[in-house]
Design a protein around this nucleic acid. Structure first.
Lengths: 121, 121
DNA sequence: TGGTTAATTAACCTTATAGTTAAGTAGCAG
DNA sequence: CTGCTACTTAACTATAAGGTTAATTAACCA
């Protein structure tokens, strides 16, 4: 069950792949262009595999031009990810609300959160 | 070398864990609260493991209260992710620029991108 | 003290991921 | 046709991820 969003997050969970995306954000590049910074650390087939992961996740598009495979970013996929994360925007903008909640916590003695979890009574 | 951002993306790359985060966005919840929607599909230790992944990624914080382990979201971690993705905002807002680039492409005959990749001459 | 609830740890299994080397395909240039 | 450049595929290996069951810890309750 590899849903699209899971594939996208998984693809982003690798520093090599993220570095490739950074390079692509500066414009279209071929496989060997993208491989260049990594050929000391890994082989070309490894690079091919990383690009395949990015492609399957929809983050990049690979086209053909003679013997080259120019790659470019796919904006919509990034927007998908951004939209999901944005659901949590209120959470990270909530500092003061959370401080407020904390102050209530230290005031109350027992069961500070006011929740009773699974308690029977 | 699991850098923080990689850990965060990896933690988000699982629908069960994302569902847990959704629940936590509605407020603090204990491990068994979080487990409830999943106990038909998986065991409690599996839930514990998922929460450990979220915790190591810094996306949630687990505290202690008697025999319960209330969990809550950690806003900063989400902000980290959002900030990274936001680097690509221009890409997905670039529709018209890309249409423009495409129009140039269909006009030029040879080597449409104007790039020469690794070509010697 | 003994039992129940909440959660974790240990040991194990299966599959996926990230890498390797070696061989194969495809386009172009002499 | 030969050979170089660009890239992919195949086959294999090692480790990590996600799940299981069974046993363990820990806090509360009667």
């Amino acid at each position: 069950m590899p849903d699209t969003l899971s594939q996208r997050f998984a693809a982003l969970a690798d520093p090599t792949r993220r570095a490739m995306l950074v390079q692509l954000s500066r414009g279209q590049a071929s496989v060997s262009d993208l491989a260049k910074p990594f050929l000391k650390e890994m082989s070309l087939p490894a690079v091919t595999k990383h690009l395949k992961v990015l492609e399957k996740a929809g983050l990049i598009t690979k086209t053909r031009e003679a013997q080259w495979r120019p790659c470019q970013l796919n904006g919509e996929a990034f927007k998908d990810v951004a939209d999901w994360v944005d659901q949590y925007r209120t959470i990270w903008e909530q500092r003061f609300d959370r401080l407020d909640a904390y102050l209530k916590t230290v005031t109350a003695k027992q069961n500070p959160t006011g929740k009773n979890y699974g308690r029977k009574k």
